[in-house]
């Protein structure tokens, strides 16, 4: 009964992983042949190289721009929409809607919003006057704003996911906890900090892990929105885009691509362990 799963996972996950680790200490010709082992120092060299460091820096920045904001927005909206207001169902539908957009769909929508020539914002007169930078140079073309612009698209695209999860988490909080707190005289704000948030612990931990790993694996949005640019600073070249994207100095070097990919795996591994052990122990699991 295990055989089918085992066959697939060994063939397409474990074997390629081992191969990639081996390939990562080799250098090959541009066609991926005639590989020669250079030793595992190659991993250290790659990790400390300025290109990888730059890509890693961008990736961390990207995660810091998207994860906390996505979390705050998701929790905030879910709490707001959890109240018994008339018509709140409509709002819930709206906030959940972006879960239906794939990376390609969401990125193209935002490309059409932000593109400085044919984009929406750049072609609306009053927006232009309010924010001249949407046109010249354009948020996606300015090294100072490009990563923020990509992050906006990503936060938007992830909002549905976060919102649905947190909403479900809220509904799992026993009502008597709130009532008890209210009887103790706790107001809305107080109850949010002392009841709602702690009870959401496991949900929030999960959201953080998923959003972080999405940020660390960002590729589609980068390719569609900025191609790793704007030049010269490669301001949106994340690690994944550095490995597989256009105009990378290692695009003709399958060995170095593997080196960088394995490093990305190790980074994600460290992050997962950090998040699960460091944070997980502190998360309140209700009863």
């Amino acid at each position: 009964m295990l055989a089918p799963s085992l066959l697939i996972l060994v063939t397409f996950v474990l074997y390629p992983l081992v191969r990639a680790v081996w390939l990562g200490q080799q250098r090959c010709d541009n066609f991926g042949n005639n590989c020669v082992s250079r030793g595992f120092d190659q991993y250290v060299d790659m990790f400390t190289s300025r290109e990888f460091q730059s890509a890693l820096g961008v990736t961390v920045k990207y995660a810091l721009l998207t994860v906390p904001l996505g979390l705050v927005l998701g929790v905030g909206l879910a709490v707001l929409a959890d109240k018994h207001l008339r018509g709140v169902g409509v709002f819930r539908t709206v906030f959940s809607s972006t879960v239906a957009t794939s990376v390609a769909v969401a990125s193209l929508m935002w490309l059409f919003l932000l593109q400085p020539d044919v984009g929406v914002l750049a072609n609306v007169g009053w927006i232009n006057e309010l924010f001249p930078s949407v046109k010249d140079p354009g948020w996606l073309r300015d090294p100072g704003t490009a990563l923020v612009a990509v992050s906006m698209s990503s936060v938007w695209a992830n909002l549905g996911f976060t919102f649905i999860l947190v909403t479900a988490g809220l509904q799992g909080i026993p009502r008597d906890l709130h009532e008890a707190a209210a009887i103790d005289g706790a107001g809305d704000v107080r109850r949010f900090w002392s009841v709602t948030l702690p009870m959401l612990g496991p949900t929030l931990l999960f959201v953080v892990i998923v959003l972080t790993s999405r940020a660390f694996q960002a590729y589609g949005e980068i390719e569609l929105l900025t191609q790793g640019g704007p030049a010269p600073y490669d301001s949106t070249t994340t690690v994944t885009y550095f490995i597989y994207g256009r105009n990378s100095v290692i695009s003709g070097d399958v060995g170095l691509q593997a080196t960088a990919a394995v490093l990305l795996f190790l980074l994600l591994l460290v992050l997962s362990v950090l998040q699960l052990s460091g944070l997980g122990r502190r998360v309140h699991y209700g009863d």
Binding site: R38, T48, P198, G201, V208
Partner: peptide, 30 residues
Amino acid sequence: ASRRIAALALVGAASLLAAACSSGESALES
């Protein structure tokens, strides 16, 4: 919990960066 999560995420990210002492060499030298 969430305040901790945010704080720890920041610390984790920062330590990752700090751990990396950039040699300034190109990846091609790997």
